[in-house]
Amino acid sequence: MRYLEAGKRHTVRFTLNGRAVEREAEPRLLLSDFLRQHLGAFGTHVGCEHGSCGACTVRVDGKAVRACLLYAAQVEGKAIETVEGLATPDGLNALQAAMQKHHGLQCGFCTPGILMSLSQLHAEEPDADEARIRDVLSGHICRCTGYHGIVQAALDVFGKD
């Protein structure tokens, strides 16, 4: 049994956007804080720390989940994907480019989480319709855009392949 004592740091091994990472963390360290403060992956943002806003959404073994409701210790052996891993060597990926084209972001704070949710949906359900896209997006709060550009961006990308 892996038993990590409070107040002490323990090694956690996982991959971050395909790169192997080995770092120490206390049991109570939130994954969101681990990514940002210990790994310098600032692209994942923290908006509420109670699972309601979706800003911190990352993919763990492919699934879009809230990083504020996970502890660093829980991602041992897992594959973490964050917004920093989305762009291709040639530039923005299709979803990112569509977000720019359709003005799907203003302040951009909620955007990384939204991209991670949509990236899972696109990988698993590339033909998802608008109702399904909206259902997935409903787990994110955006205070700038009124969501219009985000939905348009998704519609531009889904159902194309």
């Binding site: 692209g43 762009a87 977000m99 720019q100 951009g108």
Partner: peptide, 18 residues
């Protein structure tokens, strides 16, 4: 298109806490 966007979309924009 907005010139701000590529940085934001890559998660490379620096907000206060970053």
């Amino acid at each position: 298109q907005r010139v701000e966007d590529p940085t934001l979309l890559r998660g490379l924009a620096r907000f206060a806490d970053d």
